[in-house]
Design a protein around this nucleic acid. Sequence first.
DNA 1: ACATATCTGTTAACGACGATATTAGCCCTG
DNA 2: CAGGGCTAATATCGTCGTTAACAGATATGT
Lengths: 240, 240
Amino acid sequence: MPVDPNPAGLAAEPGATAREQTRRRIIDVAIDLLERGGRDAVTTRAVADAAGLQPPALYRLFGDKEGLLEAVAEHGFTRFLAAKHIGPDPQDPIRELRVGWDIAVEFGLANPALYALMYGEPRFTTVFRIGLELLTERIRRLAAAGLLRVEEDLAAQIIHATARGAVLTWLSLPEPQRDPALLHALREAMITAVTTQDPAVQEQGPAGAARALRARLPDQDVLSPAEQRLLTEWLDRLSA
Amino acid sequence: MPVDPNPAGLAAEPGATAREQTRRRIIDVAIDLLERGGRDAVTTRAVADAAGLQPPALYRLFGDKEGLLEAVAEHGFTRFLAAKHIGPDPQDPIRELRVGWDIAVEFGLANPALYALMYGEPRFTTVFRIGLELLTERIRRLAAAGLLRVEEDLAAQIIHATARGAVLTWLSLPEPQRDPALLHALREAMITAVTTQDPAVQEQGPAGAARALRARLPDQDVLSPAEQRLLTEWLDRLSA
DNA sequence: ACATATCTGTTAACGACGATATTAGCCCTG
DNA sequence: CAGGGCTAATATCGTCGTTAACAGATATGT
């Protein structure tokens, strides 16, 4: 394993390693071949030819072809995130969720071959994991507002599954049968499944959540009386 | 185009053409190879070898490899329909919809490689079209009962998309992260989007407030790290 | 009944693919 | 100037999908 001569990632654009530059060039031509001629068009020979090197060079940079495709998926994903990044909207986290879902779906519709590469076959890939983690981050803001109907991990899975089904189904339909109402219906179904209409907490911050929980604590039966007694004490401290 | 010597499909099992019998044998071994070793294990040589012929024989029967895979997908689909066919339930078409969705999802979870072959890549295939048509048939009964919220075609697309997202997402998750609540949530989201039935609003209880407090826990400093750790565990239990 | 056509499966081979071992060129350090 | 270590090119292997040419079996037509 060679040492990265640019560990901090400073000046990544101009000062990147030659190795990193050729990697980028190869990934770019691979994405181009992918979107132009489908997955079967991405052969080691075609990629090497379009990038101006010999096929064995790919194996030194990506290990094998699967590594190349993984790098392609990862790069396409990060490029999408960088281009369409939306700032947090503390005013309306539900609107933020809608916008984020729309952006993810639009990315799939705009890059069908890349999307099929990333989410076509069901495998636990890095891209899949990172996508869920980024979702979890935003879901936390929903939870903090008391707007979450389900657990955070489950919410991320629901959001991902509806978007994935939306993109793949849309792309499977012949053009005249594609109706934007499908996307709208799936998005709103996702919103209903994930969020709740009336927030569970009114006041912001940990104190508000603690007071809301303390008020509803008698309804539960998953904690023993002793646990509940100690929890109540902590909630009182948090409420102050 | 040769004339089908058995157009009525009578006595399909014993009286089938020799051609039809070898086709079935080849499809069976192809399905076996598919579920055992994934899509890459289905090579013309491996299939021919397992079926006791030489590779060129496949081309007389299926045209090319894509034709073979298409026949595999189609056969797996019809076999699934024959095995799990459910009769119409005029008493409760919404329950019929739930059962049908569950069956479709279970089929995907039970035959992951076959499902990925049928619905992994977004293409307008015969299997996709027939699946939607069969759905439309049942949706008509919902419409007749006045329970449909959207157009029939759109309803079929919503049902398909939620099931597709459910299966692929479920199969993408590592085993410990697979929660049946995902399937339940997606199914009920589908019901809400497709039918006029009001969503069964379950009483929130302390779960929402617990999730809100858990999301805001890092913001506080009145609890010690040890207290916070135990509190997090309790909040997770309350959130479920 | 016999010749003919069709079907079915074989052997052999082609071109392209993913992948690797080996060899030649290059730069940097001493 | 010498030599080690990295980079890149050459040549090659085994496998893949696919096709051509051919042989036996079967059905068909007169």
